[in-house]
Amino acid sequence: MFPDILANMAHIHLGEGSFPLWALALWTAFGVGLVGLVVYRIRKGGIKTHHIALAGIGAAASFAVFQLNLPVWGGIHMNLTGLVGILTGPLLGTLIALVVNVFSAALGHGAVGLLGANTLVNATEAIAAYYVFKTLLSMDWDVFPASAGAATIGLSLGAVLMGGIIVISGVNGSALPRGDLAFAVAGLVGLNLGVAVIEGILTGFVVQFLVSVRPDLIEMVDRRATEDEPAGVSA
């Protein structure tokens, strides 16, 4: 049986012991490797002061919204990891994913043994959202469609990774053959894609609002605005 198995909005909530030990070790190793790489890059490159502030606020918002179950699609929660990735970048976005998962697991929302896997999933969302947003801006997209699309794509990739992790690991106590398990998990992933649209639209509105009041907070947009400004040379 599965006493507390739920996986929504690309976040695996399996009870302790639901994954085989080798899988726990594997995903934890990947998670540690990713966080190690991020910390190394941050130590080497430093962090801008306003990014630290955004990271604090982003972590608070993401953690709070993680715990709120909305009555849509049967009952889901959002992550805001796409928004966090766009606002703080891939490095701090990964650390925020770790922090939010640690706090959530401490409250029983997600297994401690799955911190590595869940950090990988949520960090993927933040990293992918950041790079898709950057790419779309470079293609001269407006802020709303770029951020909404980037968050939706980032969250979708996270959902696919979540499904992949479950299928590769297998679930202790499930009698389903791997093919049937993959199909069942695909259904869960599919539903997460639908939820990603809601979070994508929300992200689009938030980023659009921030750009209208504090464009300097979002570096990519600010840089583009600066580049677009006339040189100011007059005859």
Partner: peptide, 10 residues
């Protein structure tokens, strides 16, 4: 949803 899906499939 997930308990059913993972135990009994689609």
């Amino acid at each position: 949803r997930s308990a059913r899906a993972l135990q009994r499939g689609i």
